[in-house]
Amino acid sequence: MLTYTIRRLILTIPTLIFISFVIFLIVKLSPSDPTANLPLTIPPEVREKIRESLGVNQPITVQYFLWLKQFFWLEPRIFLENSFGWDLGTANETRLISYATRSPVMDLIWERMPQTLWVVGTAYVVGILIAIPIGIYSAYRQYSFFDQAGTFISMVGFSVPPFFSGVLVIVVFSVLIPTDSFWWLPSIYDTTHRVTDWESFKFQFRQMIMPVMVLALQITAQISRFARASMLDNLNQDYVRTARAKGVRERGVVMKHVLRNSMIPVVTVIALGIPGIFGGAIITEQVFKVNGLGQLLIIAIQGGDVPMVQTLTFIFAILIVLFNLVADVLYGLLDPRIRYD
């Protein structure tokens, strides 16, 4: 297992390099000029100097390797310096600068990260916590009313895109319900809000309900179906009959024997879904005006902010590759029948 993990880890390097190159090429083909948004009063020769200082005039391979170096060598060191107070001699090196804001790209990303992680993370946990009991119960009572209703609701959850479910809950809870009502919820997520006491915690809770539930609906739809299918696979196995025959209580059979075995594929699906949920968060963040990574990406794309788009897209790619690896390794760890060596 360890050799397998190490082999896979080594294999991710060419994958990531290839993806980074693809992303770099696509974005670099963009005709957008980094100085286009500057005031018109800047004379052309100064404009050319600015371009030079941004490194746009260099050959594309040089730019690519510079970007790789900044992303994989300089930024981790800066991160270490900031978190542990060490001095690794990064003060004089040029960091990756955003065209739009002229501040280091990674600083902006670290700034936006908590909002996204907070909303996405909570939604994922909530979604899983709802999905797994539903999956277990629908499988245990297959074709019952609860199961049929669950199937229908998860089909709806699959089909209603977050940009409609989000708008729908805003219409219901922010527009139709009067503002002074208990059920009224804010439609705009206020990220400057700090939780200091009970009242502010209540506000934070209320403003998180809608974005979290919209994201959680999608997660629940997928994972509950998967948990159900996986439970059904196991419920008819011989070991379940043996357990019942030797007098294990029904509760013990389902919650211990069957559940543990059926959670193996579910856990891997949960791991595989994490990068996808960041993609979904791009839209949800746009609907509820959360200023997280997704919104940063949209603004960067609209503004032609090449370094920002490259870095953010690449971070999404890293997430996918990483969690694919995690899922494969988890599968091998949890299921002794799976051996990759």
Binding site: T15, I19, V22, I23, I26, V27, L29, S30, P31, P275, G279, I282, I283, L297, I298, I301, Q302, G304, V309, L312, T313, F316, A317, L319, I320, V321, N324
Partner: peptide
């Protein structure tokens, strides 16, 4: 291709 972040890439491609 499965490892590419599709939504961001689509946005970028269409923009460009």
């Amino acid at each position: 291709f499965l490892a590419l972040p599709l939504l961001p890439l689509l946005l970028v491609i269409i923009m460009l």
